[in-house]
């Protein structure tokens, strides 16, 4: 996918990163246009989480350029980070607090005006059918509810780019599919670009675009329908297996 569109949700070019002598990412290029659902597939250890840490500014890349919502991450870090909504692989809700307290905390971190804060929380929770959970402690919620609250939280500041790092790990099939459906709706209705990292194939069967990250490099990329047609495969799992030579079943690499 072209990286030239500076208004894209995300444009990452020539990203390199290493831990000591060990290269973790080599010349990675990724673009996520507005309103598209882009999948980043790779086995554990492929470099997905490191790439996400770089995109969110937790690590600094050793080379390359990242633009988020048109803002250069290195030169204009705050504006770039303001454009991102993130759902991390690990739960980041504070277990000592209620749902409402967690969401208010997030709103404060993003400078959302006090007058508007509650309205946004109500709207975000309502859109995922979670309104009745506001006063509940995080520890009282199921895993699926917690992840959906994290998704609702990630949208409170109206980001134009969503980054999801294996957000469904630990959820059962029904909850995973519900979560995927929520994200796709968000993507289309709000024109938000989504980068979804996963090793669970069935979640990204109809992604707009797919990147295969293998040992820190983008091995293949393309529109999922085009790639399937080109290689004569019926599913992303089959395609992954075909392209990487790694076994993959229907849901898990």
């Amino acid at each position: 996918m072209s990286n030239d569109d500076t208004d894209a949700s995300l444009s990452a070019r020539n990203i390199n990163f290493s831990f000591g002598c060990k290269a973790v990412l080599e010349d990675v290029q990724i673009a996520v246009p507005n309103g598209q659902f882009v999948a980043l597939l790779g086995q554990n250890g492929a470099g997905k989480t490191t790439l996400f840490s770089i995109i969110t500014g937790l690590y600094a890349a050793h080379g390359g350029e990242i633009r988020i919502g048109g803002h250069d991450l290195r030169m204009n870090t705050e504006a770039a980070l303001a454009s991102i909504g993130v759902v991390f692989q690990r739960a980041t809700l504070d277990r000592d607090l209620t749902v409402k307290q967690n969401l208010r905390y997030f709103c404060h971190l993003h400078g959302i005006a006090t007058s508007e804060l509650q309205k946004r929380i109500d709207a975000a929770l309502a859109s995922y059918g979670l309104s009745d959970l506001q006063q509940r402690k995080v520890t009282e919620l199921s895993g699926g509810q917690q992840r959906r609250i994290e998704l609702a939280r990630a949208t409170l500041h109206d980001p134009n780019f969503l980054l999801l790092d294996e957000p469904t790990v630990g959820l059962d099939h029904a909850n995973r599919m519900e979560f995927v459906s929520n994200v796709k709706t968000l993507c289309k209705e709000r024109n938000v670009g989504v980068l979804w990292a996963t090793h669970l194939m069935d979640e990204v069967e109809d992604a707009d675009y797919v990147y295969f990250l293998h040992h820190g490099k983008i091995l293949f990329e393309g529109g999922s329908a085009d790639l399937l047609k080109e290689h004569g495969k019926k599913s992303i799992a089959e395609l992954y297996s075909h392209l990487t030579g790694q076994p993959a079943d229907a849901t898990v690499i």
Binding site: T56, G57, L58, T77, E78, A79, A80, L81, A82, I84, V86, F88, Q89, R90, A91, T92, L93, D94, F106, L109, H110, G111
Partner: peptide, 14 residues
């Protein structure tokens, strides 16, 4: 370790 520090550090402030 639990991840909530990440949430703080990706906030759009120095």
């Amino acid at each position: 370790e639990m991840g909530s520090m990440r949430l703080l550090l990706v906030s759009p402030l120095p």
